[in-house]
């Protein structure tokens, strides 16, 4: 339980990527004793029936909405029912794990929880965990946009079945994952055995995630999927109001192509503003009290599909007089898209 909120963990990954095995291991841990699991499909691996709730996947497409602005009615109903049960004293719950079906897009789940007028006061999405099979992962990432997107929106990527993969295959996968999502924390698990503390140790906004970003891999491989990652730096403090206008307009026009936005921004306040979003959906930004002796520096990362990074830079340049600072693309990611 986090400040009265029930934490939500979303686990995505292809069929057979080890989601349920991982979950079964976690459900034996003390920190998962008040956890309810919602699944859309039953896998081969059985879970304890007492904690399991199965719902038929049922998506409502909102009028005029794009693919991420869909409401997962099944989840909204089920999460509402869980609150009722808790209030009636029939169940104890401090965490809900949503195990998605293999091809599901995690964005509508985030959208449903964060925009529902009731749910948003009871639930907080803490983490999106994506499982990737070390043996078949490469194939999944090459062939399907779904797999790429699942990696892009994840905070934690868990490489499963690492005992079956060659060291080279594994290294290749690491590189590929960091290309798609340099902010992800990548961990390995054999038979799903990885302590939850190791996975959920840091907060979703972990500042260190962004700092680490700048020392990440430089790859020479080509992006075949059109997914690009860019990191933008600003030399001076930003105007938060103007930046909000720019980003909200960008996401309104191109939200479907922007898989991820994450940033730490210097807005001239005593502390930084932390930003984290998936497509149109931005988590409530945190205005921190202090920088904790870190260098005051803004940095913004976009993971996006089919948008030329030069256009983003051009746009920021035109908006510069409002936003208050010149933007530059940091070198690590320049190398990535020079190759592609």
């Amino acid at each position: 339980m986090d400040g009265g909120y029930i934490s939500v963990v979303i686990i995505t990954g292809f069929l057979g990527s080890g989601k349920t095995t991982l979950l079964r291991h976690w459900l034996e841990q003390p920190s998962f004793q008040k956890t309810i699991v919602i699944v859309n499909e039953f896998g081969k691996v059985g879970l304890d029936q007492r904690v399991l709730r199965r719902v038929e996947e049922n998506t409502i497409l909102l009028g005029g909405g794009c693919a991420c602005c869909q409401v997962r009615a099944d989840l909204v109903n089920e999460l509402g029912r869980i609150i009722d049960l808790r209030d009636q004293g029939e169940t104890e719950v401090d965490q809900v794990v949503i195990e998605t079906s293999g091809l599901a897009d995690p964005a509508p789940i985030l959208f449903s929880i964060m925009t529902d007028s009731m749910l948003r006061h009871h639930y907080k999405v803490k983490h999106v965990v994506s499982c990737l099979d070390s043996v078949n992962g490469k194939l999944h990432l090459e062939n399907g946009m779904e797999a790429v997107k699942q990696i892009a929106v994840a905070d934690r990527v868990i490489l499963t079945k690492t005992d079956l993969a060659q060291e080279e295959e594994k290294q290749e996968l690491y590189t590929r994952i960091y290309e798609i999502n340099p902010m992800a924390v990548v961990l390995e698990a054999v038979y799903g055995e990885i302590p939850p503390e190791k996975v959920f140790g840091n907060e979703i906004y972990g500042k260190q995630d962004l700092i680490r970003l700048h020392s990440k891999v430089k790859s020479e491989s080509v992006h075949t999927t059109g997914v690009r990652t860019i990191s933008i730096g600003f030399e001076k403090p930003l105007n938060w109001a103007a930046f909000g206008i720019w980003l909200s307009a960008l996401l309104y026009a191109h939200g479907e192509a922007v898989y991820r936005v994450k940033g730490i921004l210097d807005t001239g306040e005593e502390g930084p503003v932390l930003l984290n979003g998936v497509q149109h959906i931005i988590h409530p930004p945190q205005h921190l009290d202090s920088w904790n002796e870190e260098e005051h520096q803004s940095s913004l990362v976009f993971i996006m599909r089919d948008i030329d990074p030069k256009l983003i830079l051009k746009s920021l340049k035109a908006f510069q007089s409002f936003i208050g600072s010149k933007a530059e693309i940091r070198e690590i990611c320049l190398e990535l898209y020079n190759e592609s």
């Binding site: 720019w246 960008l250 191109h254 051009k314 746009s315 035109a318």
Partner: peptide, 12 residues
């Protein structure tokens, strides 16, 4: 029209 901050005409 959709306000598009990447639209070259708007930027100019």
């Amino acid at each position: 029209k959709t306000v598009d901050p990447l639209d070259p005409d708007l930027l100019s």
